[in-house]
């Protein structure tokens, strides 16, 4: 009884949220409704007994993908009026694509529910005595392992492609080389300055930064600093390739 009530609650909220995704005026609200829709879909999975799929849907789509959506939508300066302007022009194309998708969906569901071959699969989706995490694991990693690996390879190629397309080395900006910073010693950066007696400084000697780097580095640095408008390096000891300060 409770499962039936929960099913209708999840299903109704899912449909309303899905409708609100496309109809709400604010894109941030759209993404939030999308998240609500995912959430309810996970609830439906749970009722159907597919708890692994439900949790994976939450982790992957709600926890990662939708966060990035939200990120992008919040950061972009979207002009709502402009987005709505082409509504009538694109309506026929959109309606056609929607109709095709709908017909495909009907065909798939129809084939699943009335096809003679699918009848056996429909009644025993998971083997008995195995909960669905183990059943999925067997299917993916034992029966269809090569297909799974091929899919993984395609994703890897896509990932490397995305990195190659977006990675650019900026020569002008500074970055830390932590190895160099950690390997710095006192002897490399500080030197003892001999001070004559009575020269108003403690006669025990003082440490001061060694001036070894050539002048042009200094000039270059002040240039890049002016360009960047702020100090890119870190605090304190973060100056492995800063020119030592001249005092």
């Amino acid at each position: 009884m409770i499962a039936t009530i929960a099913f209708y609650v999840f299903a109704v909220v899912l449909l309303v949220a899905a409708a609100m995704v496309v109809s709400s005026r604010n894109p941030v609200h759209s993404v939030l409704f999308l998240i609500l829709a995912f959430f309810n879909a996970a609830g439906l999975f749970l009722i159907a007994g597919a708890e692994f799929l439900a949790m994976i849907l939450m982790i992957v789509y709600v926890g990662a993908v939708a966060v990035l959506f939200l990120f992008v939508v919040m950061m972009l300066d979207v002009n709502f009026a402009e987005l709505r302007s082409g509504f009538q022009r694109y309506l026929p194309i959109g309606a056609t694509i929607g109709a095709v998708l709908f017909i495909e969906l009907v065909l798939v569901v129809g084939g699943w529910s009335i096809g003679p071959l699918s009848e056996g699969a429909r009644f025993a989706p998971t083997p008995a005595n195995v909960h669905n995490t183990a059943a999925l694991g067997r299917l993916i990693y034992t029966d269809y392992v090569f297909l799974f690996q091929a899919a993984g390879l395609v994703l890897l190629v896509a990932m490397i492609g995305a990195i190659v397309l977006t990675l650019r080395e900026r020569k002008s900006s500074r970055h830390q080389i932590i190895r160099l910073q950690n390997s710095r010693t006192v002897a490399e950066t500080l030197e003892m300055v001999p001070v004559s007696l009575g020269a108003n400084i403690n006669t025990l000697g003082i440490y001061r930064p060694k001036v070894t780097e050539p002048e042009e580095v200094l000039a270059d640095e002040s240039d890049s600093e002016a360009l960047l408008g702020h100090h890119g390096g870190g605090s304190g000891g973060a100056g492995a390739h800063h020119a030592p300060e001249v005092r």
Partner: peptide
Amino acid sequence: NVGILYLFAISS
């Protein structure tokens, strides 16, 4: 059954 996934989902 999937307690650890549930925790991971909630924390995400």
